[in-house]
C-alpha cells in the first residue's frame, strides 16, 4: 500500500512540481555565487578562530610560558611535548617546546588550560606542507614577538612567586605575605 502511494505521488501529483523545481533551479542562474576564489580571495576568519598555535611573550618581551605542562596534559591527542627548565633568576621557561601539527585537532584545550596565556590559537589555517615532518613545529617556529590576544598581561607581575629581582608580595595588586608566626598569641 505504501509503495502504491509513493508511486502515485511521483507519477501524478508531482508532474508539476518537477517542472517547478526545474524552473527554480534555472532561476539560480541569476543568484550570486557562493564560491570564495581561495588563493586570490581569502576567507574571512573571526578573531576567535582556532588555527595555528603560537607561544606569546609578555609586555617585557619575556616568554610567558612557565613550562607547567598543563597544555600537554590537556591535549587530547598528546601532540605537545616540552621540557621545563629555569634561568638564573629562577624563572621557568621551556627548554624545548614542540607541537606536532599533523596530530593537532585545533580543539583549543591547550589554550584553555594555560595559566599564563602563553599558548594561543590564532586565525590562520594555511599550514600546508609537502613533507609531513615539516608539520612538527619547534619552539623557534611557535614563539612570536608579541602578546597575542591578551595585551598587557604579565604573569610574573601578578603572581605571588619569588624570582630574581622580585620577591613575594611585590607584584601588582598583591599584598605582602602574611607572617603566620607573628599572629600567634
Amino acid at each position: 500500500m505504501d509503495n502504491r502511494l509513493l508511486t502515485m505521488d511521483i507519477t501524478e501529483t508531482n508532474m508539476f512540481s518537477i517542472i517547478q523545481s526545474m524552473w527554480l533551479t534555472f532561476l539560480h542562474m541569476f543568484h550570486k555565487r557562493e564560491t570564495i576564489q581561495y588563493p586570490e580571495e581569502k576567507v574571512k576568519l573571526t578573531t576567535r578562530w582556532r588555527g595555528r598555535i603560537v607561544l606569546t611573550r609578555d609586555p617585557d618581551m619575556g616568554e610567558r610560558c612557565v613550562g607547567c605542562y598543563l597544555c600537554a596534559a590537556a591535549c587530547p591527542v598528546d601532540c605537545i611535548s616540552l621540557q621545563a627548565t629555569e634561568d638564573e633568576h629562577g624563572r621557568r621557561y621551556p627548554e624545548f617546546f614542540r607541537i606536532n601539527f599533523s596530530r593537532c585537532i585545533f580543539c583549543g584545550y591547550c589554550e584553555e588550560a594555560c595559566p599564563t596565556y602563553a599558548i594561543q590559537l590564532i586565525p590562520d589555517f594555511e599550514m600546508g606542507e609537502y613533507n609531513r615532518q615539516n608539520l612538527v613545529y619547534e619552539k623557534k617556529d611557535l614563539l612570536i614577538d608579541g602578546q597575542g590576544k591578551y595585551p598587557g598581561y604579565n604573569y610574573y607581575k601578578v603572581a605571588g612567586l619569588a624570582i630574581g629581582g622580585k620577591d613575594k608580595g611585590e607584584a601588582e595588586h598583591e599584598s605582602p605575605p602574611v607572617d603566620v608566626k607573628s599572629l600567634l598569641p
Binding site: 533551479t25 539560480h28 542562474m29 543568484h31 550570486k32 555565487r33 557562493e34 564560491t35 576564489q37
Partner: peptide, 12 residues
C-alpha cells in the same frame, strides 16, 4: 555541463 551545473548551484 560542469560550468552549467555550477551556475545553477551558485558555484563557478
Amino acid at each position: 555541463e560542469r560550468r552549467l551545473l555550477a551556475l545553477w548551484q551558485d558555484r563557478y
